[in-house]
Amino acid sequence: MIAALKQLHQPGLIQAACFLRNKEVEASTFEANDRNYQTIARQAFTYIFHNASRVGANHNESHLEIGHMRLSGFLMPQGWILVCLSPKHSNIQLLREVVKCSQKGLRAATESA
């Protein structure tokens, strides 16, 4: 799983990523300095996707800008959530493209977990 997450890393775009499931961090490339962001992401995206699912909405992507950073959450099959940490002013479309292009590897990683 870590290898799949590391493949997402791109200078200036994605500096850390993690997989969440059942409110827990299952794998992460967040450095110790960035763990506060990971904690925020875990609480925020678990809560927000749970609420979306509860009312029957199909929203599966969320972005939270806090301080100088942006946390992006992507809801995946089987309740997995992919989280990416990026600089706030980085290109959000490019971030989406990177995640989209990596879907196969990311799904394989979660299915094998």
Partner: peptide, 27 residues
Amino acid sequence: SMANLISALEKKAAFMGSIDNLVLCGE
């Protein structure tokens, strides 16, 4: 619920800087 989440984060995580926005999207 998004506004409530922001309100909670603003109280608990103020040391990380201000929250500018929270976006939720889907196809």
